[in-house]
């Protein structure tokens, strides 16, 4: 089922136009231009320090929290430039959820972790509604069965894989349109990784997912499209199948075969 998703005509969700990122004087990303399809998994691969995580953080303006970081170019989500002056990052981030490399549940109860987003945004008008959102999110993240009896325990008491799924549940609780995942499995063991990957396959039915990964196998397993970054440049972008079977560029070839990395 993995790449059979919907191969029909796909709508463009995110469109990156000439995006460059500077840290003080250093250019970290160089004129990145490509489109990300709606309700598909797009994976960003490349050697460490190639700028793939930086690009991911451009998509929900997480780079704003770093003072020295400057972004040039345009990122369009549904044809709206998210770097336009009238766009509020708060609103944007409610639409674009994010899951981090290391599971980072808040030091609160499992319930409060998931309820955090809806409650700061005022999405639930009553306690029941909030509870409803939390339970649905946990179910969607495939965590509900494991934690239903310990919702008041602290989120940090869960295992690594469960924590990461809790973070996913937390992200989908505000019903975002896009979920960004920054190497979500790098801190997890193989079994937990497999569960999260299955979850991604499930989530892609409803969300657009962009995932940064270090593991080419993972990119091949979960994504429909793949972008290969190297030294701050987008080298190649295309369907995952194509990238992995017939790469157009030598650098891509070298990376996939393990010569650079």
């Amino acid at each position: 089922m993995k790449k059979s998703g919907n191969l029909m005509s796909s709508k463009i969700k995110i469109s990156s136009k000439d995006v460059s990122v500077f840290y003080s004087q250093n250019k970290a990303l160089n004129n990145i231009t490509f489109d990300i399809d709606e309700k598909k998994v797009t994976s960003l691969i490349g050697p460490s320090g190639c700028g793939k995580s930086t690009f991911l953080r451009c998509l929900n303006r997480m780079n704003d929290t770093i003072d020295i970081c400057k972004v040039k170019g345009k990122v369009l989500i549904d044809n709206e430039d998210i770097y336009a002056p009238n766009v509020d990052p708060v609103l944007l981030r409610a639409r674009v959820g994010m899951v981090f490399q290391k599971p980072n549940p808040f030091p609160k109860s499992i319930f409060d972790n998931v309820a955090y987003g809806p409650s700061i945004h005022g999405l639930a008008s009553s306690k029941d509604e909030l509870e409803n959102i939390v339970l649905t999110s946990l179910q969607r993240a495939g965590l509900y069965k494991e934690v239903k009896n310990r919702l008041s325990e602290t989120g940090t008491s869960l295992s690594g894989g469960q924590q990461q799924r809790l973070c996913i549940a937390r992200a989908i609780a505000v019903s975002p349109e896009i979920i960004l995942m920054d190497e979500p499995c790098s801190a997890l063991d193989p079994i937990a990784t497999a569960i999260v990957e299955e979850l991604i396959d499930e989530l892609v039915k409803n969300y657009t997912i962009v995932i940064v990964t270090h593991s080419m196998q993972q990119a091949a397993r979960v994504s429909q499209n793949t972008a290969f970054f190297h030294m701050g440049n987008l080298i190649e972008f295309g369907s995952t199948q194509k990238i992995f079977s017939t790469p157009q560029f030598k650098q891509t070839q070298d990376y996939i075969t393990g010569k650079i990395g």
């Binding site: 509020d88 609103l91 409610a94 945004h121 005022g122 505000v174």
Partner: peptide, 16 residues
């Protein structure tokens, strides 16, 4: 634009 965006937008001024 989904319904959540509307809700969030309405409370945004107060949060700011």
């Amino acid at each position: 634009m989904n319904k959540n965006t509307q809700i969030i937008k309405s409370s945004l001024l107060k949060r700011k």
